[in-house]
Write a protein that binds this DNA or RNA. Structure first.
Lengths: 195, 195
DNA sequence: CCGCGAAACGGATAGTCCATCCGCATGTGT
DNA sequence: ACACATGCGGATGGACTATCCGTTTCGCGG
């Protein structure tokens, strides 16, 4: 372990470092959006920085990917909390699920982070945990209202979401097509989930 | 293009070559079953053969993977044909779908080949095409019987299957757990597919 | 049984990509 | 302005991939 590696998302102290940190993140976001797999070497070249700089800020591609995905995760977490205030348990659950899947389909970073079992950043783990918890709450509420088929339990939520997002990848490479497919698939899933 | 590369599954003529071909396939099957990613170099070492030998028989990991998956594909194709003879359109379709998903969950090679958009071996393309066609026929029959929700068309079949198989991967790493999850997910999907 | 041409083998090696390390530059507090 | 800490950058070693060609093995015809 050569560097005092930061495994959190805190921006570094020095001004140039902070600037580079942001810049790397921007470039990484662009790469993710155009579907290119995140290679730190590649990121460095595109950012006009040395490889070492990138590796210091983000020791692995996963760390960079998780940092890129963090804002989206935060949004989803907030939306989940909000869904808990809706009146109808079923639509609250259905809407939340739809949004989660749409997020994954729109953003490859999110899809990868969601599917990965272990996280390198504590912040990511925390957010995923939180989203999972509110998802479970929404599912519990819907179940309590007698709207959920007994076969499905809370642990199935994340796999099913990831499965749908993956299915849209197999279906098409075009984002619009994938979004349309995602909606149909979620609707199908919801019909199947209903008691 | 240095070698007269074989892109079909024909066993080579000479005895030693045929033996090695089989041996490579056996080793590859073992690697696939234990979840190791297929690296030709690795295959060569484990088979006690030179790298060149492996690369001559199978120019890419994909070619090897597809050859490994071929017998399973053939079985699935045959089962599909058989399903067409069943009386009830819905159960014929449902049984076929269940078997296809179970195949993918049990065999990682199958899952990868199914999800890949382009095939390197003509035989693989042919078999996939055939399975797709009978799947479409089964779905058409069920639809004609008024049992299928209008949102879903034939092109959704493969993505949904791959999605479920992927979902089980996210759910668990244990094969038995994954198989159980797969059955529940297929049932859920089928409920959602029903008109 | 032997010899010969074709077929197949094997591993040395070049190319590619990834990640580390450390000498140098830049920023920051005194 | 100086010194120290922090960050930068790319040369470099290590791992892996895939190719090429000199050597070996096979099997057929004499």
């Amino acid at each position: 372990m050569a560097y005092p590696i930061k495994l959190d998302t805190m921006t570094p102290q020095r001004k140039d470092a902070a600037r580079n940190w942001e810049h790397i993140l921007t470039v990484a976001r662009e790469l993710v959006d155009e579907g290119t797999p995140l290679q730190l070497n590649d990121v460095a070249r595109r950012a006009g920085l040395g490889v070492g700089t990138v590796y210091r800020h983000f020791p692995t591609p996963e760390a960079l990917l998780e940092t890129v995905a963090t804002p989206c995760l935060e949004t989803l977490a907030a939306q989940g909390e909000q869904a808990l205030t809706h009146d109808d348990p079923w639509t609250a659950f259905a809407d939340c699920l739809t949004r989660l899947v749409e997020g994954q389909v729109t953003d490859p970073a999110l899809a990868k982070v969601a599917a990965s079992a272990q996280d390198v950043l504590p912040r990511t783990a925390e957010l995923k945990q939180q989203i999972l918890a509110t998802g479970a709450k929404l599912l519990d509420r819907a179940r309590a209202a007698g709207a959920i088929h007994p076969d499905i339990d809370n642990a199935d939520l994340v796999p099913l979401m990831c499965g749908i997002s993956y299915a849209t990848y197999v279906h098409s490479t075009d984002t619009d097509d994938r979004l349309a497919a995602a909606r149909r698939y979620v609707d199908t899933l919801l019909r199947g989930l209903r008691a």
